[in-house]
């Protein structure tokens, strides 16, 4: 694979953030090989909000983890910011938000957000300033000295997003970040996430299994299906970037949701 040469020379257009071609990933298990990803081709442009939707086992989380260099593809090529995921990770090109908030119970909210900054060796004054900035960004100003257990689940997840934003990576990878939260909190956080995206101009890759969430948030929806994990449909959303919550009752919204649902159903017809 000529990837070694490619890795340090951004050959692709500058505004392509994720570029995957013929990506395959096979896990060897006791029950034989599992095709987590088969022939995945996808381009994500800078500033896009891309949702990955599909039933469990369709490889959407695996794909996100490949972007983050947490899994290695078996074959095919993927570039993040024009370089290999490993290089992108070393450059701290992305922030990753996991399913659970994953805040350290022995650190305050401020301390948790500071953690990646400490690891990256930023000066103390810069750390303090960044913490303030992102806390305001996620609407948690004043909670710096609180411990995680003193916050609700939704607030913890917001703190976790703040932590991923703190070191100013251009890409935000989010793996079902609101999956464990109730519908009302979820709506609220979705709205806030859109506002945050508009303000920070980041590229967001967002894994979800909720159709309304995917349609409401995304400029591009990637529909995936399992066994083997593959992309069955890529929908460019015609919805405007400004999206009030009640856009979800508009005919355009329902039309996209319908198309996503059809895509998911088609994927299931294989087995």
């Amino acid at each position: 694979m000529p990837a070694d040469q490619v890795s340090r020379t951004p050959r692709i257009a500058r505004n392509t953030v994720i570029d995957a071609s013929k990506l395959n990933l096979t896990f060897e298990t006791n029950d034989g090989p599992v095709h987590a990803l088969r022939d995945v081709d996808l381009k994500v442009e800078a500033g896009e909000f891309v949702s990955f939707i599909g039933p469990s086992g369709c490889g959407k989380t695996t794909f996100l983890r490949v972007m983050a260099d947490l899994e290695q593809p078996t074959s095919g090529q993927i570039l993040v910011n024009g370089v290999l995921p490993e290089v992108a990770r070393r450059n701290r090109a992305y922030g990753y938000v996991f399913q659970a908030a994953g805040l350290y119970p022995w650190r305050t909210i401020g301390g948790n957000i500071r953690l990646p900054l400490e690891i990256m060796g930023m000066p103390k004054a810069v750390q303090a300033q960044k913490v303030q900035e992102v806390l305001e960004l996620v609407d948690l100003a004043g909670f710096e000295k609180k411990y995680p257990w003193q916050l609700s689940g939704g607030m913890q997840q917001r703190a976790s997003i703040a932590r991923a934003l703190a070191f100013e990576a251009g890409i935000l990878l989010m793996d079902e970040p609101f999956g464990a939260l109730d519908e009302i909190v979820r709506d609220h956080l979705n709205e806030q996430l859109l506002a945050l995206w508009a303000r920070t101009q980041k590229t967001i890759c967002f894994v979800t299994h909720s159709i309304p969430e995917a349609v409401y948030l995304s400029t591009k929806i990637v529909v995936m299906s399992p066994r083997p994990g593959r992309i069955t449909d890529v929908i460019d959303s015609p919805l405007p970037r400004e999206r009030p919550l009640d856009i979800r009752d508009s005919p355009e919204f329902l039309e996209i949701a319908h198309r996503v649902r059809e895509g998911l159903r088609a994927g299931h017809a294989y087995d």
């Binding site: 990770r89 990753y96 399913q99 350290y104 022995w106 953690l115």
Partner: peptide, 28 residues
């Protein structure tokens, strides 16, 4: 958890940092 270790990996933390900032406090 694996998630916490992955998290450290996404921040490109060194082995020593992982030990001091995560494993040691978690073991207290």
């Amino acid at each position: 958890s694996q998630m916490e270790l992955d998290q450290m990996c996404t921040w490109n933390a060194s082995g020593v940092q992982e030990f001091i900032k995560l494993r040691l406090p978690a073991s207290m």
